[in-house]
Simulated assay, not measured.
Amino acid sequence: MSQKLPSDGLRRFTRRRPLALACLLAIGPLLAAGCAQLSQKERELTFRIEPGTAGWYSGVPEGLVETWLPLKEGGEERLHAWWWPAERADAPALLYLHGARWNLTGHLFRIRQLRDFGFSVLAIDYRGFGKSGGQLPSEETVYEDARVAWRHLASLQPDPSRRFIYGHSLGGAVAVDLAHRLRADTLPAARGLIVESSFTTLADIARSLSYRWLPVQLLLSQKFDSVSKIAEVELPVLLVHGTDDRYVAPRFSEELHAAARGPKKLLLVDGASHNNSMRMAADEYRAALGELFGLGLAPADTLAHEHGAR
């Protein structure tokens, strides 16, 4: 006899749609499929790319420059990127790595908030997202895309003490991987790592929504294992999470914080959701950046941007 989820558990499961639901949905129906088909479907469900522009996007703001980053010298595939320099020429610069589903047009509100803090921001769409070339991304291709963007950021901000890596949700795992590779890949140095609303591993997300004894780590080809990598990251790490995040539980950031061995800080934002910690706790966020990284940032923008509470 097949085992069924209790009705209240099923309702809770179906409400939590974005990243976590995608991970678990990839498991059951794919067991009977071939390895290639399983990997293809798993990647589709992990990244869940929404084509076109986000419904709340109102256009490129003044001062933001659209640019293209070649993936390989002489190659045709390129990454679509936004470069939004701060008003101060000596401002710290930050690489923004977004999560699943939405392309850059769905992340402008958070990019704007980071610039309001005083950062110059370089943000990219991974292959397969938005205007970037390529087809369906994978764990390895998004890692590669982040490295290409990081080298470009180093050309925009030559001072390593003023370069930062930022990742939100699934992008947090991409950010951790990039920070982990800085020395091994002789990549340009960074001052710090900022990870918001992220998780330990993709398998942990799936287990949190299902039966903990399920061997999901054996079924998923996309690992996104941040918890083992962050223990070897040598940068100061700021972890931010909303206490009311319905998609990725705040305990995952607590576990990442416990695993990190260098200078670190955990900012839990009371009442914040998966997407609005920066808006709800702008002053606390800015203070944490100053405390951990020694940044003298501009006053936070206290205006509530439309869709900022998403």
Rank of each mutant, 00 (worst) to 15 (best):
K265Q: 11
A190Q: 00
L97T: 04
G128V: 01
R310D: 14
A146V: 08
V65Q: 13
G172M: 05
G271S: 10
K264H: 14
L71D: 08
L187H: 04
Y211P: 00
W82D: 13
A26F: 02
D245P: 12
A272Y: 13
E232L: 09
L235D: 07
L209P: 01
T14C: 10
S198M: 07
L25D: 13
L219P: 03
Q157V: 05
A81R: 07
A260K: 13
G290D: 06
H305Q: 08
A190Y: 00
A146C: 11
Y211V: 10
R183Y: 09
N103R: 12
E62H: 06
R212P: 01
L69M: 13
A260Y: 14
L136K: 00
G128K: 04
A89Q: 13
Y285N: 09
T201G: 03
V233F: 05
E291Q: 15
T200Q: 02
M280T: 10
M1I: 05
S120Y: 06
R12Q: 14
K41G: 06
T243C: 05
K4E: 11
G34M: 06
E66R: 10
L95W: 15
R181Q: 15
L21M: 13
L94M: 15
I194V: 14
L97V: 11
L202K: 03
G52D: 08
S210C: 01
A149C: 03
L295M: 11
A288N: 12
F119E: 10
T243Y: 04
T186D: 05
R246Q: 10
R251Q: 10
L10G: 01
P6E: 09
R12V: 11
L114H: 11
R251N: 05
G59V: 05
H257E: 15
Y211H: 09
L214E: 02
V237D: 07
E144W: 03
Q135K: 06
S277A: 15
G34R: 10
I27D: 08
P250L: 10
W102E: 15
V240C: 12
D125E: 13
S138V: 00
R191P: 02
T302H: 14
Y247R: 08
G308N: 07
R162W: 07
Y247I: 12
Y57D: 09
